[in-house]
C-alpha cells in the first residue's frame, strides 16, 4: 500500500517540471528599484490597476543599484520594464544597459525627497549648518588649531563645534552604506560642508581620490550609528533617546510630527513648502526609467507613465503629495509630461 502511495509522490517533481516553460508574454508591468521611490510607485500602480483597464503592476523594492542591474539585463518579457531610482542613472549603468541591448531609456523625474535630520521633541530643537554636520560626522576633519592639517575627528559633543549648540554627546542614527539616502546625505551635506574649507575644495582638482576620502567618509568611532535600512526603526529609537539625532526621509518626519522635530539646516526648516521651493538644502530628485523597447509590447506602460505624470498624481495637489512626495513646479511637470507623452517611437 505504502508503495502505491509513494509512486505518485515521486512523480510530482516530474509533473511540476513539465509545467515550467519559458515565460512567453507578460500582461502586467514589472518594476524594480529604489525603496525610496517604492511608496510612490506602488501608489500609482494601485490607482492604475483600480482603473480596471490593465492589471496592477508589480513593484519590487530592490534598491536603486540593484534595480538598474536587473533593468539593464536585457530586452524581453522576463526583464523589468521600469526601474525606480533615487538618483540619476550613472554612465556605467547606461553602458551596461547598452551592452545588453537596452538602448533607449526614457528618464522621468517625478519630484523631490527631502532628507531630514531630526530628534525627539523631548530634546532641544537643533539649528545646524552643513559645515557643522560635516565637522560632527566626518571621519577626518581639519585641525581646529591649524585648519590646513587633517586629524581624526576630535569632537565629542555638539558644543565643541558651536557654542550655541547643546553640550550633549554627538549621537546620530542613520542609514547604512548600501542606502541611497546615505549616498544623498553624503553628497548634499558632507561634501558641501567639506567645500567650506577652501583648500579641501581645491583638492578635488588635484587629488580626487583624497578629496573623496576626506569628504565622503563618515566617522566610525560610535558617534554615527548605523541603524539599518528601516526608517521607522530610527524614528522609534529617537523616541527613546532624546539626545540622539536621526537621518531619514521627509515622509517619515511628516508621519511622526507628533513626537519628532526636524532640525533647521542652514537656517531652513524641513517643511513641505521649503523642500518644494528648493530652499531646504538637503533634497534630491527622484526618477523612474522606462525601457522604451517594451512600450507597446507589455500592455499599459504608456498609460502607466501618463497616470504617473498626470496632475492628479504628481501635481502640487496630487495624491502623491499626500504620500510625502515633494512635487516639482508646475512648469517642470508640464515639461516632463511632454517629454514622455509618446514613448513609442
Amino acid at each position: 500500500m505504502m508503495k502505491r502511495a509513494l509512486i505518485p509522490a515521486l512523480l510530482a517533481p516530474a509533473i511540476l517540471g513539465s509545467l515550467v516553460q519559458a515565460q512567453a508574454g507578460r500582461d502586467y508591468i514589472s518594476m524594480v528599484g529604489s525603496s525610496t521611490v517604492y511608496p510612490f510607485a506602488t501608489t500609482v500602480a494601485e490607482q492604475f490597476g483600480k482603473a480596471g483597464k490593465f492589471k496592477t503592476p508589480k513593484v519590487e523594492s530592490t534598491g536603486t543599484g540593484g534595480g538598474f542591474k536587473l533593468f539593464c539585463s536585457g530586452v524581453g518579457a522576463q526583464f523589468p520594464d521600469i526601474s525606480n531610482a533615487s538618483r540619476a542613472i550613472k554612465s556605467s549603468e547606461r553602458d551596461q544597459c547598452a551592452k545588453a541591448g537596452v538602448k533607449d531609456i526614457a528618464e522621468v523625474k517625478i519630484g523631490y525627497d527631502g532628507i531630514a535630520v531630526a530628534n525627539s521633541k523631548k530634546g532641544p530643537l537643533f539649528k545646524l549648518t552643513r559645515k557643522e554636520l560635516y565637522l560632527a560626522l566626518a571621519k577626518q576633519v581639519p585641525d581646529p588649531t591649524n585648519t590646513q592639517n587633517l586629524i581624526a575627528n576630535p569632537y565629542k559633543t555638539w558644543k565643541e563645534i558651536n557654542k550655541a549648540l547643546p553640550a550633549d554627546k554627538i549621537e546620530v542614527l542613520g542609514p547604512p552604506p548600501t542606502s541611497g539616502t546615505r549616498d544623498a546625505f553624503v553628497e548634499l551635506v558632507l561634501q558641501d560642508g567639506c567645500n567650506s574649507f577652501s583648500w579641501i575644495k581645491s583638492l578635488k582638482d588635484v587629488d580626487e581620490g583624497r578629496y573623496n576620502k576626506v569628504c565622503n567618509t563618515i566617522r566610525e568611532d560610535g558617534a554615527y550609528i548605523d541603524a539599518g535600512e528601516n526608517d521607522n526603526l530610527i524614528v522609534q529609537k529617537l523616541d527613546s533617546n532624546a539626545k540622539a539625532l536621526g537621518i531619514f526621509g521627509y515622509s517619515f518626519l511628516e508621519e511622526n510630527q507628533s513626537h519628532i522635530q526636524g532640525s533647521f539646516i542652514d537656517g531652513v526648516a524641513p517643511t513641505f513648502e521649503n523642500i518644494a521651493s528648493m530652499k531646504y538644502p538637503v533634497s534630491r530628485p527622484l526618477y523612474f526609467y522606462v525601457k522604451t523597447a517594451h512600450v507597446g509590447v507589455i500592455p499599459g506602460i504608456q498609460e502607466y507613465v501618463n497616470e504617473f505624470t498626470s496632475d492628479r498624481a504628481m501635481g502640487g495637489e496630487g495624491y502623491l503629495a499626500n504620500k510625502g512626495l515633494v512635487p516639482q513646479p508646475a512648469a517642470e511637470i508640464a515639461k516632463v509630461r511632454k517629454a514622455v507623452a509618446n514613448l513609442k517611437k
Binding site: 514589472s30 510607485a41 500602480a45 494601485e46 496592477t56 508589480k58 513593484v59 519590487e60 523594492s61 530592490t62
Partner: peptide
C-alpha cells in the same frame, strides 16, 4: 525570495503558480 523577485508590491491575489 528577495533575489527571485518575491519581495514586491502585489495587489492582486495570486491565482496560480506562475502569477506574481
Amino acid at each position: 525570495l528577495l533575489m527571485i523577485g518575491m519581495v514586491a508590491f502585489i495587489v492582486d491575489v495570486p491565482k496560480g503558480l506562475s502569477d506574481p
